[in-house]
Design a protein around this nucleic acid. Structure first.
Lengths: 256, 256
DNA sequence: CGCTCAATTGAATGAGCTCAAATCTCGTGG
DNA sequence: CCACGAGATTTGAGCTCATTCAATTGAGCG
C-alpha cells in the first residue's frame, strides 16, 4: 500500500472525490490531466439546458450552480446546488435528453469531461468508487430536500439549507470559522425552498434577529452553528461524511 | 438476435425491468429463479428501518410501499412510492446504514434479493442496464416530486401524484380504463405531498367536484385523464417511458 | 356489537402569498 | 469620478391557502 499526500489537494475536483474515497497518486495524476480547460459561465446562464442531449459531465470548480426545472406557470424549482468540487451525475449521457437544466447561479468555472474521459476514469476502481459515492450522496441530499420542503416551516427550511451549505463547503475548505461566501440571490433561495422572495427575505431577517446568522454583502456568517442546527433539525447523516473512507478502512481490516 | 416473448410477463419484476430494456429468455429465466420466496409484509410495517445495515435489495411484487423519513417533530415525509414491479436502489448495500426507511403502505409481497443474487444478475448486461434505467427513473421521479411539492398548489399536487401513479401502474398492467386500486390512506397521501390530512381530504373532494376523479372504497377512477394532466401540469417525460428500449433500438441501427 | 382507524366537516387561526412601493447595490457609460 | 439604470433587498398591508383543533360519521374486524 502506497502513501498518499497528506495535504488536501488544491484541485477541488480531486479534493472532493478524495473526501469520498482515498485516491492514489496515479489516480490523482489522471484527474489532474483532465482538469483543464475551464469554461467560464456567467451568472444566470445555462450550463446545459433541459431537453439538450448530454454529451459531457460537468464539474463545478468555482462558483455556485444548480439543477432546476421550470413549470408551465413559469415558476422555477431548484433541485440541487452544485458547489465547487461537485460533479453532476456521471451517468448522465445514458439519457437521451436532459429532463432538467443545469445553470450557473453565480459566475462559475466549469470543467467538462467528455464521454471518453469518464470512460478512462471509470477504469480506475478508486475513482469509480468515489464517483459512486458522490452519486449516492447526491441522491440522499435530494431526499433530505424533499423532507425539508415537505415538512419544515419556512424559517427552518432556510436554516437547514444554510447548515448543509456550510458543511459541504467545509469539505472543500471554502468555509472558515462558520463563514462563507454565498453568491446566490434571495430569489434563488426562494426557488430552492419553495417560497416567495418576500418571505425568504423575512425569514432571513428573522434568523438574523434570533442571532443565528449574519449577512454582509454576499458573505454569510453562521453565528451559532450548533443552535442553528438544532433549530433547523439539521443532522448531517445524509451526507455520509467520510463513509466511503470508513468503508475502505473496514475493507483493509477484514479483507473479503 | 433471438426472439423474445411477445406477451407481457406475469412476473411483475420481470415485466417492469422489460419496460426499461429488452431481456433475453435466459435473462428472464435467471430473474424468475430468484423470484421466490415472497415475504408478506402487513400494512404499516417497515420492510427495512432507518439506521439498519442493508443486506438485501427489495422488489415489491404486490401492494404499495414507500421510502420515508421521520423528523424530530414526529412528522413523516414519504419520498417515493414503490409500486408492484419496483426495485429499491440496487446499490443500496454500499451504504453502511440506511438514511431512510422503507415501509409497506398496504399489505405487500416483497422479494428479497441477496447481495449474491444481485451480483449474479449484474453479470448480465441487459439486466444491469434495466436496473440502471430503473435507478435513473427513480432519481428523475424524486426531482419531479421536489418540483411538485415546491411549486404547485395542494390540489394540483394531488392531481399530479395521481397521474403519475396511473402511468406507472399502466406499465405493469395494473390500471385498466384509468381505474386502479389505491391502497393508501389519505394520511399517507398527505405525508407524501407535504400537507395535512384534513387538507388532502378537502382537495380530493375538490377534484371530485371538478369531475376529474372518483373514489370508491380504495378504487380510484380518473374520469378525465387528459384534463387532470393539464390541470396538474403532469408531463410524463421524467418517467422516460421506453427510453431504454429506444436506446437499445438505436444501438441496433448504428452499432458502435 | 363494540372497537379502532379512516374519512369527513366546521370554525377559527395563522403562515405564507400577492401587490406595491421604497431603498440599496453595483456595473456601465459619460 | 459621478450619474444612471437594472437588478436585488427590504418593508407594508391585505388576503388566501392551508393548518389546527375538535367533533362527527363511516368502515372493517374480532
Amino acid at each position: 500500500m502506497e502513501t498518499y499526500d497528506v495535504m488536501p489537494s488544491s484541485n477541488l475536483f480531486i479534493r472532493k472525490l478524495e473526501s469520498f474515497h482515498p485516491l492514489s497518486g496515479e489516480d490523482k495524476k489522471l484527474l489532474d490531466r483532465y482538469s483543464r480547460p475551464l469554461r467560464e459561465v456567467p451568472a444566470k446562464q445555462d450550463i446545459i439546458a433541459e431537453g439538450e442531449r448530454p454529451s459531457s459531465v460537468f464539474v463545478i470548480i468555482s462558483g455556485f450552480a444548480c439543477r432546476y426545472k421550470l413549470i408551465e406557470s413559469g415558476r422555477r424549482q431548484i433541485m440541487a446546488y452544485m458547489l465547487p468540487g461537485d460533479t453532476c451525475d456521471f451517468n448522465m449521457f445514458i439519457l437521451k435528453r436532459m429532463d432538467y437544466g443545469i445553470a450557473a447561479l453565480s459566475r462559475c468555472q466549469v470543467l467538462e469531461l467528455s464521454r471518453a474521459a469518464i470512460l478512462e476514469m471509470t477504469e480506475h476502481p478508486a475513482i469509480t468508487r468515489a464517483l459512486w459515492w458522490a452519486n449516492l450522496v447526491d441522491e440522499a441530499t435530494m431526499r433530505e430536500w424533499l423532507v425539508n420542503i415537505g415538512q419544515r416551516s419556512a424559517e427552518r427550511r432556510i436554516g437547514h439549507l444554510l447548515c448543509e451549505i456550510l458543511t459541504r463547503l467545509e469539505i472543500v475548505g471554502l468555509a472558515k470559522g462558520n463563514t462563507f461566501s454565498l453568491p446566490v440571490t434571495q430569489t434563488d433561495l426562494a426557488d430552492t425552498l419553495g417560497m416567495t422572495v418576500v418571505h425568504a427575505n423575512r425569514m432571513l431577517t428573522s434568523l438574523r434577529i434570533r442571532g443565528l446568522i449574519e449577512i454582509d454583502a454576499r458573505k454569510l456568517i453562521i453565528k451559532d452553528a450548533e443552535r442553528l442546527r438544532a433549530f433547523s433539525g439539521f443532522n448531517p447523516n445524509y451526507l455520509h461524511l467520510g463513509a466511503g473512507l470508513a468503508d475502505a478502512q473496514s475493507e483493509k481490516e477484514t479483507p473479503s
